[in-house]
Simulated assay, not measured.
Amino acid sequence: MLTPLASLLRPHSIDDIVGQEHLFSTGRPLRKYIESGHIPSMILWGPPGCGKTSIASVVSKSIDADFYHLSGVLSKKEDLMKILVKAKKNYSENRATILFLDEIHRWNKAQQDTLLPFVEKGVITLIGATTENPSFTVNNALISRARVYILWAISEEQIVKFLEQNMKIIQERYNEIIFSSESLKLIASLGDGDLRSTLNLLEAACILQGKGELTRESILEAGTKPLMYDRDGEEHYNLISAMHKSLRDSDGDAAIYWIGRMLAGGEDPRYIARRMINFASEDVGLADPLAMIIANSVYDICEKMGMPECGLPMYKLAYHLAAAPKDNSVYMAMHAMQKDVREFGNLPVPLHLRNAPTNLMKEAGYGKGYEYAHNLSDKKSSQEHFPERLKGRKYRG
């Protein structure tokens, strides 16, 4: 069975790594660590196919240390304990042990906590790889004992250059295929910054083509751009934030784009509709009181009709909210009020505002001096309604 190109073309040295110049250019941190032979514990955070595993592979070939690879999905605590036994022996003999933990975010808190004393003491050097924001998925205690480095998706230009540089190896395997610059650019575009996915796509397209010039049809038949969306992950919050901010800036076109991205990724339309109700309340506010009612109606449509029929009403609502005048004064007033509640606690209700259903309460001054607004010609009373310490307070201008 043939080794996949993604494995065959894995880098062997620092100079083979694709992209990530901010970490591997001359004088940049990861290059300096590898060249020095002293690797600190670190978390590599980036999208799929950006080189996290390749970097760990380069580290394993570049320094004198025992190197172990565990999967956060498949490994168990017993697997780690076996490595720790060897690591403690290495430590006593002044030899380094590096543990590469792929998909570290898949380990629960208890599993991650097992690593803490060994990472802190230097018994093992941890290289954790994750596609999820470590702020949410890796224990704070572990993050504080490691450096976090962000890896970026690989650009189309970098992917095309990589394919061209490795074309001899690619054509040794697919010697009846003719590759044009246009076909390489299309493959790189569909790979969407994921080099592993790009190489898998290229292989699938070559198999479908069989021989001759690799055509656009074969490439598109082999696969399309994957949508990166996880309803429980960071991208979920990134996209909903982008929608909210687009609406706030009155950009309806951008808002429906982000909504469409979420729906295409499998998001529950009711979640998006709830966020739009919230936007109508927070950001449109009293400038268009009907906006919240309309948004609630669209939520009902999502509830009753579901996808794909509810998509169009959601896009209409997005354009309505984007075009609506904006007023967050009540939202700001709410926060100012909550600050007073937290700061001043249980301030007494002024006596004139208290109800006095019994004679004892009347004698105590409850309700005394209360001004009944309906007895006034303009129906408005200027009497004080706040506790004494907040007298004259204004939350909304």
Results as ranks from 00 to 15, higher is better:
Leu126Ala: 13
Leu126Ile: 13
Leu126Ser: 11
Ile127Asp: 09
Ile127His: 09
Gly128Glu: 12
Ala129His: 08
Thr130Asn: 05
Thr131Ile: 05
Glu132Asn: 02
Asn133Asp: 10
Pro134Leu: 08
Ser135Lys: 00
Val138Arg: 06
Asn139Gly: 06
Asn139Tyr: 07
Asn139Leu: 14
Asn140Gln: 09
Asn140Lys: 09
Ser144Lys: 10
Ser144Val: 04
Ala146Thr: 15
Arg147Ser: 11
Arg147Ala: 07
Arg147His: 13
Ile150Cys: 10
Ile150Trp: 05
Ile150Leu: 13
Ile150Phe: 12
Leu151Lys: 06
Leu151Ala: 07
Trp152Pro: 00
Ala153Lys: 15
Glu157Ile: 11
Glu157Pro: 07
Gln158Val: 02
Gln158Asn: 14
Gln158Asp: 15
Ile159Thr: 14
Val160His: 10
Val160Trp: 13
Val160Leu: 13
Lys161Arg: 14
Phe162Met: 14
Leu163Glu: 12
Leu163Trp: 13
Leu163Met: 15
Leu163Val: 14
Glu164Val: 15
Gln165Val: 01
Asn166Gln: 09
Ile170Gly: 06
Ile170Phe: 07
Ile170Thr: 09
Gln171Ala: 09
Gln171Trp: 03
Gln171Met: 13
Gln171Lys: 14
Arg173Pro: 05
Arg173Met: 08
Arg173Asn: 06
Tyr174Met: 12
Tyr174Gln: 09
Asn175Gln: 12
Ile178Asp: 06
Ile178Glu: 14
Phe179Ser: 09
Ser180Thr: 15
Ser181Thr: 13
Glu182Gln: 14
Glu182Ala: 12
Ser183Ala: 15
Ser183Met: 12
Ser183Gln: 08
Leu184Gly: 04
Leu186Ala: 03
Leu186Trp: 09
Leu186Gly: 07
Ala188His: 08
Ala188Glu: 05
Ser189Gln: 13
Leu190Phe: 00
Leu190Ser: 04
Asp192Pro: 03
Asp192Gln: 13
Asp192Cys: 03
Gly193Met: 09
Gly193Asn: 06
Asp194Tyr: 06
Asp194Trp: 02
Asp194Lys: 02
Leu195Thr: 03
Leu195Ile: 11
Leu195Lys: 01
Arg196Thr: 14
Ser197His: 10
Thr198Asn: 07
Leu199Gly: 11
Leu202Pro: 03
Leu202Cys: 09
Ala204Gln: 01
Ala204Leu: 10
Ala205Asn: 08
Cys206Asn: 01
Cys206Thr: 02
Ile207Leu: 06
Ile207Asp: 00
Gln209Tyr: 04
Gln209Lys: 10
Gln209Val: 02
Gly210Val: 00
Gly210Pro: 02
Gly210Lys: 00
Gly210His: 01
Lys211His: 10
Gly212Glu: 08
Glu213Ile: 00
Leu214Ala: 01
Leu214Tyr: 02
Leu214Thr: 01
Arg216Ile: 03
Arg216Glu: 15
Ile219Arg: 01
Ile219Leu: 01
Leu220Ile: 13
Leu220His: 06
Glu221Phe: 03
Glu221Lys: 12
Glu221Val: 00
Glu221Cys: 05
Ala222Tyr: 01
Ala222Arg: 02
Gly223Leu: 10
Thr224Pro: 00
Thr224His: 10
Thr224Gly: 13
Lys225Ile: 15
